[in-house]
Amino acid sequence: MRILKYISFLLLFAWQINTSYAQFAPKDDVVKAMLFLQQNEFDSAKKYIDSAIENPELQNKQATWYYRGYIYKALFKQREKNNKFSPYREEAVRSYKKSLEFKQEEQFTKGALKSLEYLAATYYNDAAMAIKIDKDAETAMKMFEKYKQLIPLANPNEDIKKREVEFYLALATLYNSQDPQDSSFDQNVADRAINLYEHVLSLDTNNASAYYNLGILYYNKAASLINKMDYDEPLDVVNEKLDHCVSLFLKALPYMLKAYDLNFRRKDVLEGLVGIYYGLNDDEKYEKYKAELDALKNSEK
């Protein structure tokens, strides 16, 4: 609010008591730019603020770069809010950051940091939309990296690790929707999801969702191999593939047991354990968790 009042004062001072812009045009390009912005004449505002940063008398002032950020942020919101690669947003960020390099005035510093936090949030939101709507992992990663680079400056108190966990869990869902019964099941796609869930565990060692999904992914990789197996192949080839499936079930097991210990989605986890122990031909453990699963299902009736 103080900044807006200051802008109004500048404009009032520039105009003094006259209303004829043609006769009494203010000399300061920053003032001109903000005047045009108030009139929603964005192209003219941009023209004059870009001229101001080339002026030796204005280019080394915090206010000049702050207002340039203000104008470019307005252009972004007006014209490119749905453009994840908006040049206006990039220039707004650059200008606000540049404004922090000069002698600090509280009103401009606070305004710049608040605006940078807003712009960082738009990057995070764009990353989320790239996953949810566009199914575009590459763009999601680029937007999230921009958020991670900007938010420590804008708000040092932001819990970045929490945001990272949320983001990588969401990103992993792009690679974790394959049906192992489908002949198109891609082991490499599953491996991408595995890498993302393992990264989540490096950030949050008790993330039950990551443990459960890792268990499911290794189980699905084994189930897909079994479904695609050609038993007419030479016996040694078949046995080699079966051994690989067993190794995948064994990889799935500790993740699923950890999810069980964390009491995560009990019914789903029990179904996972039943499937894994069945694949390992461990009848005792299979019967144990099958009985618990049946009891749970009966209690839900």
Rank of each mutant, 00 (worst) to 15 (best):
K267L: 03
G279N: 10
K103V: 11
L257R: 14
S224H: 12
F76H: 11
E105F: 07
N188P: 05
F36H: 13
E292C: 02
A170H: 06
K221D: 01
T64L: 04
E117P: 07
S209L: 09
K5R: 13
S99G: 03
P156C: 14
D243W: 08
Q39D: 13
I131P: 02
D191E: 15
Y289V: 07
E91R: 13
P156S: 14
K285M: 12
E106C: 09
N207I: 05
A154S: 05
M34T: 08
E41D: 15
L169F: 00
A170M: 14
Y123C: 02
K301N: 09
Y123N: 03
V165M: 07
K161C: 11
K288E: 00
S202H: 02
S8V: 10
F13D: 05
L203V: 03
F85K: 11
S8T: 10
Q39E: 14
E101I: 10
L296E: 05
K5Y: 12
L253D: 02
Y197Q: 04
C245S: 08
R192M: 07
A45W: 00
P254S: 09
A45V: 03
E138T: 10
D236E: 15
N155G: 02
F24G: 06
Q187F: 01
D294P: 00
A92V: 04
K46N: 07
A259E: 00
D191G: 07
K290H: 12
L35A: 13
S8I: 09
N298K: 15
F42H: 06
K228H: 10
L262E: 00
K132H: 10
D179W: 08
E41S: 13
L250A: 10
Q78C: 05
E271I: 09
R89P: 11
M229D: 02
F76C: 01
G69C: 05
E138A: 11
A74V: 01
D182S: 13
S202K: 01
N298F: 12
N40R: 15
A193I: 07
P180Q: 13
Y123H: 07
N220L: 05
F249I: 00
M129C: 10
E164A: 08
S184D: 13
F9M: 10
K114V: 08
L225R: 08
K146W: 08
S184N: 12
D134Q: 14
C245A: 14
I151E: 06
K135L: 01
K297Y: 06
P152N: 11
K47N: 04
L201Y: 14
E198R: 11
D268E: 05
L214K: 05
L217N: 06
D43P: 02
V30G: 06
E138W: 01
Q62E: 08
Y67G: 04
L12W: 09
H244P: 00
F36I: 03
D283W: 00
V30A: 05
N40P: 01
K46F: 00
T19P: 07
S202D: 12
K81Y: 12
S115E: 14
L248W: 04
K162S: 10
R192H: 03
L171R: 01
M34H: 06
G279V: 07
H244W: 08
A252K: 02
L196N: 05
E164H: 08
L196H: 08
F76R: 02
E57D: 11
Y211D: 04
K241W: 06
E145C: 05
R89A: 04
A120S: 13
